[in-house]
């Protein structure tokens, strides 16, 4: 009780000090701050102490003198569930890090505000990949299989090679993971009628895990030779652990492009601030922060400095259209569930 009281007093004192400091800083700059913060829903990978949220909050304040209240949820599927639960009562202004299969199958008209792409910096990603007036890409990457290059010297050259090999593989479950369902799009876009055959062959030496986190952790524990991840994943090991033992496959048929998006919610009470937030994400500094903290590639045309390790495994890019994602999701999930 005493501790709580002390904590309470301390909190009050700190809050008062913060208000005084904040007010004096604002007066010094001669600008009136927007008091209510922008509420942003993001995956916990964004908001945890390791994610980009803290740096982005600082940048947003520097650029627009406004605060962000991040609500970290455990993934983009949970964000959607939460939005559906809240309905019109939602106090969120914006969402970030929505993967292709998630945002394409969301009824965007009901949840997301129309945005004008001209308001934002020019995007380098081909328009076909995100043809919508409701969301905008903030980071990109490529799907790839990650492996230990000290153990595997001659990695397979294609998905078919991998399927016909005896290597142990970990895949994310397409029922629960955006990465998992994206893999099915990747196989289907290359092998078309042979998709079932390839998947059946691959599943003979493959185990599935619920999410990307579970899969990658299992891989790091040595449970498989290959794991479905991203071409930028080895960069994490290089930059954080100074470990060059991990590589990503560069298949001859190309690697599937995966984009992550941000959108402004229809329920937003600060639409202008939310627009500024996305502008900040797409600014040079914003893109650098996202790239560095999320190990992803930038999406803007403007040249920014990113670590070379992020581009080490960039391969020929394959992409699928939003319409293809929407119409084929259920078919591919069923196909996968009924594999013999």
């Amino acid at each position: 009780m005493k501790i709580q009281l002390i904590k309470h007093i301390n909190n009050k004192t700190l809050s008062a000090l913060a208000v005084v400091l904040f007010a004096s800083t604002s007066l010094a700059h001669g600008k009136k701050p927007d008091v209510s913060p922008l509420v942003v829903y993001a995956p916990s990978s964004y908001t945890s102490s390791y994610g980009p949220s803290k740096l982005l909050t600082k940048l947003f304040y520097k650029q627009y003198h406004a605060k962000i209240k991040w609500i970290g949820l455990d993934g983009s599927t949970t964000i959607i569930t939460r939005l559906k639960l809240e309905g019109k009562k939602s106090k969120a202004d914006a969402v970030v890090e929505m993967a292709d299969p998630i945002i394409q199958t969301l009824n965007q008209n009901s949840y997301l505000k129309t945005i004008d792409p001209k308001t934002f910096p020019a995007i380098a990603i081909h328009k076909k990949a995100y043809d919508s007036k409701h969301y905008i890409p903030i980071e990109t990457g490529q799907l790839a299989f990650v492996y230990n290059n000290k153990k595997i010297k001659n990695p397979p050259k294609s998905i078919a090679d991998l399927a016909n090999s005896k290597y142990k593989v970990i895949l994310e479950d397409p029922r629960f993971s955006g990465t998992g369902i994206s893999f099915l799009y990747w196989v289907d876009s290359i092998y078309k009628k042979k998709t079932t055959q390839i998947l059946q062959q691959l599943m003979k030496h493959t185990i599935t895990q619920k999410t990307w986190d579970d899969s990658y952790n299992m891989f790091l524990k040595g449970e498989s030779d290959f794991v479905l991840s991203y071409a930028t994943s080895p960069a994490y090991h290089i930059l954080e652990e100074h470990n060059n033992n991990y590589s990503a496959t560069m298949f001859t048929h190309g690697n599937l492009e995966t984009n992550y998006y941000a959108g402004i919610l229809k329920t937003s009470k600060h639409p202008q601030l939310a627009t500024n937030f996305i502008k900040m994400l797409l600014s040079k500094e914003g893109q650098e922060i996202i790239s560095r903290k999320n190990y992803a590639l930038p999406v803007i045309k403007e040249k920014i400095s990113i670590d070379k390790s992020l581009l080490k495994y960039k391969n020929t890019q394959l992409s699928v259209t939003p319409a293809y994602i929407r119409t084929n999701k259920k078919r591919l999930q069923r196909l996968w569930l009924n594999l013999k």
């Binding site: 916990s44 990978s45 945890s48 455990d74 986190d213 990658y216 790091l220 524990k221 954080e240």
Partner: peptide, 13 residues
Amino acid sequence: AYLAYELMSKYQT
């Protein structure tokens, strides 16, 4: 429990 989950998702098993 959630902290443990977050750590796992950041390669810190």
